[in-house]
């Protein structure tokens, strides 16, 4: 058998064997991987919308997914919004919750970020940033309090504390949230999403 033929046969065999092997492994792990991704989302939703039992995707577009959160009996608990936007360093993906009448932000958690360690990365920190997202006013745009207030009580309900030395990262998160709420209202107005609103918004 001449060299060329042997080369081709060897390469093809090696390729086929490993290809087959990989296909097998892929099949075994496929479901588990999908479940992992889903679990991550569900965990984030649980953190921002307390008492949610069933998640339902209301609307999905580039960089924004809107979930409807209900209890087992169908009672509307609130909404969870998963949004991605450009941060200071790279993309930020976050999840925040809105209550049923769309009047309050019930919490925020960061799903992924690559901000500066020790500075911008503090957007993941409860004490430095996340705690201020509890019970915020969602009816108008949120603003940043700079310099940051001493305690959460000193903030007005439409303000979030800036992280010291990480103003831009804080601003980026705020921007993503404000934009997403705007978009949600836009979608409701267009009729793309139907939502029963308790107190007429």
């Amino acid at each position: 058998m001449n060299l060329s033929a042997r080369m081709i046969i060897v390469l093809t065999t090696v390729g086929l064997i490993s290809g087959g092997f990989l296909a097998g492994v892929a099949k075994l792990t496929k479901e588990k991987i999908a479940l992992n991704i889903q679990a991550e989302i569900e965990e984030a939703i649980q953190e921002v919308v307390a008492g949610a039992e069933i998640n339902q995707v209301l609307h999905e577009e580039d960089d924004l997914v809107i979930y409807k959160e209900t209890k087992g009996d169908g009672e509307l608990v609130g909404f969870a919004l998963q949004a991605t936007g450009v941060g200071f360093q790279d993309k930020i993906t976050l999840m925040f919750g809105l209550d049923a009448p769309l009047k309050n932000i019930t919490g925020l958690t960061i799903i992924s970020q690559s901000e500066t360690p020790g500075l911008g990365a503090k957007i993941e920190d409860w004490d430095a940033f996340l705690q201020f997202w509890q019970n915020r006013d969602a009816t108008g745009p949120l603003t940043l309090r700079k310099p940051p207030a001493r305690t959460a009580e000193d903030l007005s309900r439409s303000e979030i504390n800036t992280i010291t030395a990480a103003t831009i990262s804080s601003q980026k998160v705020l921007g993503i949230v404000n934009f997403s709420i705007e978009r949600l209202r836009q979608l409701i107005q267009q009729g793309t999403i139907a939502v029963e609103e308790k107190d007429g918004n």
Partner: peptide, 10 residues
């Protein structure tokens, strides 16, 4: 690839 898949899954 196998190492990558196993890590992602487990």
């Amino acid at each position: 690839t196998i190492a990558d898949q196993v890590l992602k899954a487990y």
